[in-house]
């Protein structure tokens, strides 16, 4: 994250997307990253790390957030390097597939794995219910998703990466939350001398 002097892009945010494989983590990140113009039709399993970077404007300010999207492998094949990079994510996105009970019940496990790495640090997060386009096959209700989110201090979103619907909202929310956290911390730094 080195930038030549005078070229600071904005608050640097590492977003870690977690969830079972095939829930659509990569698709969601790619759709957001490519301004809703890309959806990979052929599913390719993420074997290592995929890091996408996007600048996000903060409303009502000239500030920006530089969002690094880290789509961790759903299958548990991790290198030491990946482990190290995981240690300090800025925000977390827990994704499930609304047609899969298993993927929904895995959310708690995924969330815990991220949170236990730095339990004392506040970690803004969202729950994303994906594949809302498969309405007739949906088995996880919005209510169940919302309740899980609420009981874990997360914000609930639903989207369809395939139809490129409502994908952006969760990312903008997380970028804003981390930006707000930065503003709060700077106020604390100001009180010290």
């Amino acid at each position: 994250m080195r930038h030549p002097k005078g070229e600071w892009p904005g608050v640097n945010t590492l977003l870690r997307a977690v969830g079972d494989s095939t829930v659509g983590k990569s698709s969601i990140c790619q759709v957001f990253h490519s301004d809703n113009s890309h959806f990979s039709k052929n599913y390719t399993m993420t074997t290592g790390v995929e890091l996408l970077v996007k600048l996000v404007n903060i409303p009502d300010s000239k500030d920006k957030v530089e969002l690094y999207m880290f789509d961790s492998a759903g299958k548990e094949i991790f290198s030491e390097l990946v482990q190290k990079f995981w240690e300090q994510p800025s925000v977390v996105m827990v994704v499930y597939d609304v047609t899969s009970e298993v993927s929904f019940s895995s959310c708690a496990k995924w969330l815990e794995r991220v949170r236990c790495q730095k339990p004392e640090t506040k970690l803004p997060g969202v729950v994303v219910a994906n594949k809302t386009d498969l309405d007739e096959r949906r088995i996880i209700s919005p209510k169940a998703g919302m309740e899980f989110a609420e009981s874990n201090g997360l914000k609930y979103f639903e989207c369809s990466a395939k139809e490129m619907q409502n994908v952006d909202a969760a990312f903008y929310y997380l970028a804003n939350e981390f930006y707000k956290l930065y503003q709060e911390k700077v106020e604390i730094f100001k009180t010290m001398s």
Binding site: S90, Y182, K190
Partner: peptide, 15 residues
């Protein structure tokens, strides 16, 4: 002056 400071803006390492 220790009243003024440099703030990191997210992620590690910083240098």
């Amino acid at each position: 002056n220790s009243d003024t400071f440099w703030s990191s803006t997210g992620l590690f390492p910083q240098e």
